[in-house]
Amino acid sequence: MNIRTDFPVVRTVGVHKSFGSNHVLRGIDLDVSAGEVVTVLGPSGSGKSTLLRCINQLEEIDSGAVFVDGEQMGFDLRGDRLHKLSDAAVRRQRRKIGMVFQHFNLFPHLTALENIIEAPVGIHGRSKAEAKREAMELLDRIGLSDKARHYPRQLSGGQQQRVAIARALAIKPRLLLFDEPTSALDPELVGEVLSTMRDLAEGGLTMLVVTHEISFAREAAHRVVFMDGGVIVEQGAPEKVLNDPESPRTRQFLSRFI
């Protein structure tokens, strides 16, 4: 493991977010270092998915600040005044972050290969031939090179999610966000997606994973963050948080999985 702790890839400072009267995030301070794999656990409604979506600005935060690679997301401090960034600048910031969704969100009218090269060619301006070659390498890595010309609906859920992971990797992200990547899958398909994610974790990618898979947290994460009621209840090494949690809320949550 080669973790740089001096310069976090993600830093959130006192992040608050409400939807109407529903106060979902109540002051989140979280750092993720380069190469670190952090798993966020917590009951549904604890705000973990919202936190993920705030990091790549799919949701706008109400107060606090989010930094990715030392750059404040959505805002620019000039002198002592904070300015909201233009839509175009926000899009540029998002381009270094990959995201894997619960429902895959592959583009159904494009083949697996076309899904993967869409962003590299269309947004990052890479040549089509180069993007195709890299996409085939990625498909090979996830064991789906024979499915390159298949449309998403011809693939199983697990295969679709693995293609979605390849699609997120194709933009060479500084950070990869996973929003409950296995929650929409049939139980027998969860394993193949988790093993793909485990390979990535070992490859030194910075990953922030919201999941219900305790096994993934235990085996692949460097750190486990437990959230409940919009706050981080506790965090630490997986063996500590999962085996010997300090908070009764964590203990109660984990008891459901034993």
């Binding site: 799919l58 910031q93 998002r94």
Partner: peptide, 27 residues
């Protein structure tokens, strides 16, 4: 068109015009 498609294009940092042209309109 499923809203997840729009979110996927946003997460990639795709411009609205390109998202409409490449992803939303074809569907």
């Amino acid at each position: 068109v499923d809203h997840g498609q729009v979110e996927a294009t946003q997460a990639f940092g795709m411009s609205r015009g390109r998202s409409l042209r490449r992803v939303i309109l074809p569907q």
